[in-house]
Simulated scan of single mutants.
Amino acid sequence: MDIMNIVNPILSIGGLGVVFGAGLGIAGEVFKVEEDPKIGEILEALPGANCGGCGFPGCGGLATAIACGNAPVNGCPVGGAACAEKIGAIMGVEASASDPIAAFVKCGGTCEKAKDKYEYFGIDDCNMAVQLAGGGGKSCTYGCLGLGSCKKACAFDAIEIVDGIAVVDKDKCVACGKCVSACPKHIIELLPAKKKVKVQCSSKDIGKNVMQVCSVGCIACKICEKNCPFDAIHVIDNLAVIDYDKCKSCGICANKCPKNVITGKRPTPPAQAAPKAEAPAKEEAKAE
């Protein structure tokens, strides 16, 4: 057998490999995209939580967006002000302070205040329970089921189930939004953390039906709307909704709400005591 019949194909294939490799190398140099070195610096300054709370696919996505000018330097809710300051220095801009936000559960229907249709026995998971008749055991179809899907989704231990409903610790919450996505009832919302006034209800049923299933549900009476001096709260679809661009957290709506649906109630100032009547002037002693 002629050995060249084996050598020639090997050499041919090897030669083609060299040619194609060289071509790919040249193409790589011609079409390569230079990465902004700031991306790596920003990525190093970020906390690396990859929670998605910034609205981008992880810290890498946010770093690229910041470097390209498509996201603010304070776009990371986890890193906070310290992280924003570092990134601002990298980008050569001043990091403006932003109002912190935190998750808020729009339901106050605890075990004593909200009725149940039936007692649920099953997996402690809201997404499983909501598949059952009526959307779970709670009589209010909008109410928190309290089975902890949001708690499991939170990587920062910021949610606890207390008396049948989810409660958020705003000091631990980083506004990553995982609990918002995990809740099948869609009753968790990211709201300004500094604002004390919030509507702790999600029901859009008419008032009569709300009162039958929950003692702390919004009945759409519009008392809050009528008493707000800043036009910051309106009843929409049978539910009070706050415009936080207008809200001054005065607490008037919370104090006026007959069902205690709105948080941020202000203490009633003590009644002032009526002024004492002045004692009648003593008659001047008669001259002897």
Rank of each mutant, 00 (worst) to 15 (best):
N5E: 14
L190E: 10
N70L: 14
E160H: 07
D231F: 11
V174W: 06
V18Q: 02
N5C: 05
K256G: 02
A133G: 10
A232C: 07
A84H: 02
M1W: 10
C250K: 05
D237K: 04
C154E: 03
V213E: 09
C228Q: 00
I10G: 07
A63Q: 03
A254K: 00
K282W: 01
C140P: 05
V180C: 03
I236V: 15
G80Y: 07
I6A: 10
V7M: 13
G21C: 07
A287D: 11
N238L: 06
G75N: 01
S96R: 13
P57K: 09
I223E: 12
E41P: 02
C54Q: 10
S98F: 12
Q200A: 09
P280I: 09
G52F: 11
A285M: 06
A49F: 08
K265Q: 07
V216W: 00
G61H: 06
G48M: 12
F156D: 08
G79P: 10
C218H: 06
K106E: 14
L147T: 05
C140G: 04
G134W: 09
A182S: 13
N238I: 06
D99Y: 05
I123T: 15
C68Y: 13
K106P: 00
D169S: 09
I159A: 06
G109E: 08
K170Y: 01
K208Y: 03
L239A: 03
N5K: 08
G28N: 13
A155Q: 13
E119P: 00
G28V: 08
V197P: 00
P229F: 09
K246W: 08
V162I: 15
N238M: 05
P269W: 06
C144Q: 03
A114S: 14
I87A: 04
P9C: 07
